[in-house]
Nucleic acid binder design. Structure first.
Length: 117
DNA sequence: GCGATATGAGTGC
DNA sequence: GCACTCATATCGC
């Protein structure tokens, strides 16, 4: 993984700052190291990373995309342990009827979603 | 609307 | 292996 330099560069810091300012920042160029996670967790996190700015997906839809139809709950469980908040925009994943949950607090999740709209 | 139940993957024992 | 846990979904009432 030679993305070590990229991950630790201040570019990530700047991107996060700009993101919080309300800019449309693409975090795909930052590649977190997921080698110590299970295959399922890597699949979930990589899929969440592809969710476009300003849009949301449901846990069940995410489960479908990674070939684990019906595993919505497992997806949520995985996201709750999200190793890289913001970079992996787990706040764009919501429940079907509700908004879902967030490790950083639901208030923050709503705030982030509001920023992206 | 609300409660019970089904369900997938992770963790600890 | 087994028995939990959980940021869900869905059905019955």
């Amino acid at each position: 993984m030679s993305n070590y330099e990229l991950w630790n560069s201040d570019e990530l810091y700047k991107d996060i700052s700009r993101y919080l300012m309300g800019e449309n920042v693409d975090f795909l160029k930052h590649e977190p190291n997921l080698s110590n996670l299970t295959k399922f967790e890597q699949a979930v996190l990589n899929e969440v990373r592809k969710v476009p700015y300003g849009t949301t997906v449901t846990y069940s839809e995410l489960a479908d995309r990674i070939g684990s139809s019906g595993g919505a709950r497992a997806v949520g469980r995985t996201l709750s342990k999200n190793p890289y908040p913001i970079v992996i925009p787990c706040h764009r994943v919501v429940a079907k009827t509700d908004i879902g949950g967030y490790s950083g607090g639901l208030g923050l999740k709503k705030k982030l979603l509001d920023i992206e709209q």
